[in-house]
Amino acid sequence: MTTKTLIIPAAGAGSRMQKEIPKPFIELGDCTILEQTIRRFLSLEGLQQVVVATSESFLGRGRDILDEVIPPQMQGLCITGGETRQESIYNALQKVSAIDLVMVHDAVRPFVKLQHIQNCCNAAEQYGGAVLGVPAKDTIKRIDDQQEIKETPSRQYLWQTQTPQVFQKDLLVWAYQKAMEDGFTGTDDSSLVERLNETVKMVEGDRSNFKITYPLDLELAELLIKESE
């Protein structure tokens, strides 16, 4: 059985949500968004550890949530994150036990499906790394610094990346260490692995795995929770 750790960066502020508390700690249904998200992974075979990286002022709340949802046979850790998502995940990687795969998932994607998580893990086990995503449905334009359109890339090869992003542990640790040494900041975990010329597979998910970023996203999430109840 492949062993797995889940890392959830949850140190970001909720400025775009127009809330005073970070987005992961906003209530959604009968609990926080963070708790809703963690629940999606708990029945995944081989999951041994959950590491949440959050701001120092929310460490206590994060630990309370882990105590509530993590079963006794699983390890739950809440640690202090960094100033950036990349720093938070780097900090979390220092706490990862001896396992095979590391999954990194946005704290505010509480509707990811278990089958899609498993598909992503299967691909990462085979190829080294895998990310969940969906084909781009909008036409994408590449512009210059004057906002003049320079290119319309074919949508055939454009995908919107989601999470989880899953990697063999040694590969992800190497990618993060190399990024820190080189002073490189990526937009996601995959970009750190890609720059090492390592294979990362795209695994198709669906659009219900959206990221709660704006107030309208939260309204949609609340509707979905009510429907599920």
Score class of each variant (00 low, 15 high):
residue 2 T to R: 11
residue 5 T to W: 14
residue 5 T to N: 02
residue 7 I to H: 03
residue 7 I to P: 07
residue 10 A to Y: 04
residue 11 A to I: 11
residue 14 G to D: 00
residue 15 S to D: 10
residue 17 M to Q: 13
residue 17 M to F: 10
residue 22 P to L: 14
residue 26 I to C: 09
residue 26 I to E: 12
residue 27 E to I: 15
residue 28 L to Y: 13
residue 30 D to G: 12
residue 32 T to D: 09
residue 34 L to F: 11
residue 35 E to I: 01
residue 35 E to M: 13
residue 37 T to I: 02
residue 40 R to D: 00
residue 41 F to I: 08
residue 42 L to A: 09
residue 45 E to G: 14
residue 47 L to D: 01
residue 49 Q to K: 01
residue 51 V to R: 03
residue 52 V to N: 05
residue 52 V to S: 02
residue 53 A to V: 09
residue 55 S to E: 09
residue 56 E to D: 14
residue 56 E to M: 09
residue 59 L to I: 14
residue 61 R to G: 10
residue 61 R to K: 13
residue 62 G to M: 11
residue 63 R to H: 05
residue 64 D to R: 03
residue 67 D to F: 10
residue 70 I to T: 03
residue 72 P to R: 13
residue 72 P to N: 14
residue 73 Q to F: 15
residue 74 M to D: 03
residue 74 M to Y: 04
residue 75 Q to P: 00
residue 75 Q to N: 05
residue 77 L to S: 05
residue 77 L to K: 10
residue 78 C to E: 08
residue 83 E to W: 01
residue 87 E to Q: 15
residue 89 I to P: 02
residue 90 Y to P: 00
residue 93 L to K: 04
residue 94 Q to I: 12
residue 97 S to M: 10
residue 99 I to S: 11
residue 101 L to Y: 11
residue 102 V to C: 00
residue 104 V to Q: 03
residue 105 H to Q: 07
residue 106 D to A: 13
residue 109 R to D: 00
residue 110 P to Y: 12
residue 111 F to C: 07
residue 111 F to H: 09
residue 112 V to F: 03
residue 113 K to V: 06
residue 116 H to W: 12
residue 123 A to E: 11
residue 124 A to C: 03
residue 129 G to R: 06
residue 130 A to W: 00
residue 131 V to I: 09
residue 131 V to G: 06
residue 132 L to Q: 02
residue 132 L to P: 00
residue 132 L to H: 03
residue 134 V to Q: 08
residue 136 A to L: 01
residue 137 K to E: 15
residue 140 I to Q: 03
residue 145 D to M: 13
residue 150 K to N: 05
residue 152 T to C: 08
residue 157 Y to G: 06
residue 158 L to V: 14
residue 159 W to N: 10
residue 159 W to F: 15
residue 159 W to Q: 04
residue 162 Q to K: 06
residue 163 T to P: 01
residue 163 T to Y: 00
residue 164 P to H: 07
residue 164 P to E: 02
residue 166 V to W: 04
residue 167 F to M: 00
residue 167 F to R: 04
residue 167 F to S: 04
residue 167 F to V: 02
residue 167 F to T: 10
residue 169 K to N: 05
residue 170 D to E: 15
residue 173 V to I: 05
residue 174 W to A: 12
residue 176 Y to I: 12
residue 178 K to A: 14
residue 179 A to Y: 01
residue 180 M to K: 15
residue 181 E to V: 08
residue 182 D to Q: 15
residue 182 D to L: 15
residue 184 F to W: 12
residue 191 S to M: 09
residue 191 S to P: 07
residue 191 S to H: 08
residue 198 E to P: 00
residue 198 E to C: 01
residue 202 M to K: 03
residue 203 V to N: 02
residue 204 E to M: 05
residue 204 E to Q: 12
residue 204 E to A: 06
residue 207 R to D: 13
residue 207 R to I: 14
residue 209 N to A: 15
residue 211 K to S: 13
residue 211 K to N: 15
residue 211 K to Q: 14
residue 214 Y to A: 07
residue 214 Y to W: 11
residue 215 P to V: 02
residue 216 L to K: 13
residue 217 D to F: 01
residue 217 D to N: 14
residue 218 L to I: 09
residue 219 E to C: 03
residue 220 L to Q: 08
residue 220 L to T: 07
residue 221 A to T: 01
residue 221 A to C: 07
residue 222 E to I: 14
residue 222 E to L: 11
residue 223 L to T: 11
residue 223 L to F: 07
residue 223 L to V: 10
residue 224 L to F: 09
residue 225 I to R: 14
residue 226 K to F: 04
residue 226 K to Q: 08
residue 228 S to M: 15
residue 228 S to I: 05
residue 228 S to N: 07
